[in-house]
């Protein structure tokens, strides 16, 4: 048995909490592009610092974005997963951090941790019809999935985008929407809660679009992002159309502080949204969302 002499203290080196690979340490990216989408939404293009390789991401994943000294928030990636070297995030100004984010200028630093979380089932959906349903600021987190599908269009059946916004002015990515609407192999249906100006399209929430859409329930994989109430109604309508909850995917939004399953903020029942989500199949969360306040 090893026994240190009583007069000569035996002190192993102290334990050290090393900063390397610490999941809570942010990486200072630079703002390379800045675009105001509409009144309260904006898109940032971010590039990594020299020597830092940008990790690939999957459609539906998110990053934790940090504004120096102000705070950190989870934001979905809205860019093209096939476009290397740049991170694209689109968000709405809703609090102190996103407000400070909008005040950033080209060349300013912004902290990035990620990418985190589960992704839209774009690979599992090959050979099937894809129905994307978005409400308001729910379109940006779905855009990477649409990019992915359009880049491999021949692998999918019908592809459909159903999109609802508050007003025509609130619609995200109007130029791209126009481009997408002109594509012969992509069906786009949009609606607004309130018609303004010379709007001649649909008026009302997204659910009636789901009701009218030419959906073949056995072939369909649906991906839904938007306000939780809109998600629930869209899922109920899909279920009425015969699309199974296992083929219906939703992206949930919850408070997150760590994004790595250690802070407890993003619990939804037995799920940690940062770890098990944000993309869930609807059968995983239906009971919890119907309950409310979970």
């Amino acid at each position: 048995m090893l026994q240190p002499p009583a007069d000569r203290p035996f002190a192993p080196p102290p334990a050290v909490a090393a900063p390397d690979l610490d999941p809570m340490r942010t990486v200072p990216f630079r703002v390379a592009g800045l675009h105001v989408d509409n009144e309260d939404t904006f898109t940032l293009e971010l590039t990594p610092p020299a020597g830092h390789e940008l990790a690939p991401f999957k459609p539906g994943q998110f990053n934790m974005l940090y504004v120096f000294g102000v705070g950190e928030v989870p934001i979905s990636i809205s860019g093209d997963p096939d476009r290397p070297g740049v991170l694209v995030h689109t968000t709405r100004e809703v609090g102190a951090v996103t407000q400070a984010m909008r005040g950033l200028r080209i060349g300013d630093a912004i902290g990035v941790r990620g990418p985190f979380g589960s992704s839209w089932p774009v690979e599992a959906a090959e050979g099937r019809d894809v129905v994307l349903i978005a409400g308001g600021i729910g379109l940006p987190p779905l855009r990477p999935a649409l990019y992915h599908v359009l880049a491999r269009r021949e692998r999918y059946g019908r592809v459909m985008l159903l999109y609802g916004a508050r007003t025509p002015e609130d619609m995200m990515f109007p130029d791209e929407l126009a481009k997408w609407r002109a594509m012969f192999d992509l069906e786009v249906h949009v609606t607004v809660d309130r018609a303004t100006g010379n709007w001649r399209g649909n008026v009302g929430v997204v659910t009636p679009l789901v009701k009218r859409a030419p959906i073949d329930p056995r072939r369909t994989v649906a991906m839904i992002c938007g306000p939780e109430i809109m998600i629930r109604f869209a899922c109920q309508e899909l279920a009425r159309r015969g699309v199974s909850p296992q083929d219906t995917y939703v992206s949930l939004e919850r408070n997150m502080k760590c994004a790595v399953g250690l802070c407890g903020h993003c619990q939804v029942g037995g799920h940690l949204v940062c770890r098990d989500g944000p993309v869930f199949s609807y059968d995983q969360v239906e009971r919890l969302l119907d309950q409310g306040e979970v």
Partner: peptide, 24 residues
């Protein structure tokens, strides 16, 4: 404290090396 960061001259910031001894 999880980390400290300092602004640099070019409008960026860097995280300071913050390896710390933890008590045994």
């Amino acid at each position: 404290r999880l980390w400290r960061a300092e602004r640099d001259a070019e409008g960026g910031f860097e995280l300071l090396d913050d390896a710390h001894e933890v008590p045994r």
